[in-house]
Design a protein around this nucleic acid. Structure first.
Length: 188
DNA sequence: CTTTCGATGATCT
DNA sequence: GATCATCGAAAGG
């Protein structure tokens, strides 16, 4: 069963943990995601379509790529039906294929840090605005759903200032390739 | 170990 | 002019 991108971003974010994402054959296992829903104050889509977020309002199962802090690219998967503006941010991948190419692109050796964070992951996989709006089911993308059940942990999203208490960040339990630890179960 | 801060530019008020 | 779904280097304990 392929991933159902017409589901809610929370469902999709959870389902993507353990899936394999490749871009031109380079990538690995998705180990960290975040959901951004259409009524979510923290979402880029909250104010309606703009030049930047237009692909967020396009068809589900396509990429939304934006520039972060003027220098990084970040990759999202569009969810729900076209026009809603829901998506999942891909935050970390366990490198599996094309590790040497990732090292070259990132300029570091430490495998743990190749794809641990949305900006790092995009750099390692060669994601840029060229990929914005492209369908995830066709080259250069390749997406293989999680084969078995994964143990998923949830927590608060990273780097946002609104809706900070929603537990919409998901991670593969005990993975060493996530961008940062999940904090204690009980919010402070 | 933790916290702070500069880079760098589009987007929004 | 302020804010940013970030990263990495530097400074502090």
């Amino acid at each position: 069963m392929p991933v159902d991108f017409t589901a809610s971003p929370v469902q999709v974010a959870r389902a993507l943990i353990g899936a394999v994402l490749l871009v031109e054959g380079v990538g690995g296992v998705i180990v960290e995601t975040e959901a951004y829903d259409d009524t979510d104050p923290a979402s880029h889509s909250i104010g309606g379509p703009t030049a930047r977020n237009r692909s967020m309002f396009g068809p589900p199962g396509h990429a939304y790529v934006y520039r972060s802090y003027g220098l990084h690219w970040c990759l999202n998967f569009v969810c729900r039906e076209a026009g809603r503006g829901a998506a999942v941010l891909i935050r970390a991948i366990e490198p599996v294929q094309g590790v040497e190419q990732m090292r070259e692109r990132r300029g570091i050796d430490d495998e743990r840090l190749l794809c641990a964070g949305p900006g790092r992951l995009a750099q390692a996989l060669g994601i840029t605005d060229q990929h914005d709006g492209l369908p995830l089911g066709l080259p250069p993308f390749e997406l293989r759903p999680a084969s078995g059940a994964s143990e998923v942990q949830a927590g608060r999203r990273v780097g946002i200032s609104k809706a900070i208490d929603l537990p919409w960040r998901f991670g593969l339990a005990r993975s060493k390739f996530i961008s940062r630890p999940f904090s204690a179960p009980q919010p402070r």
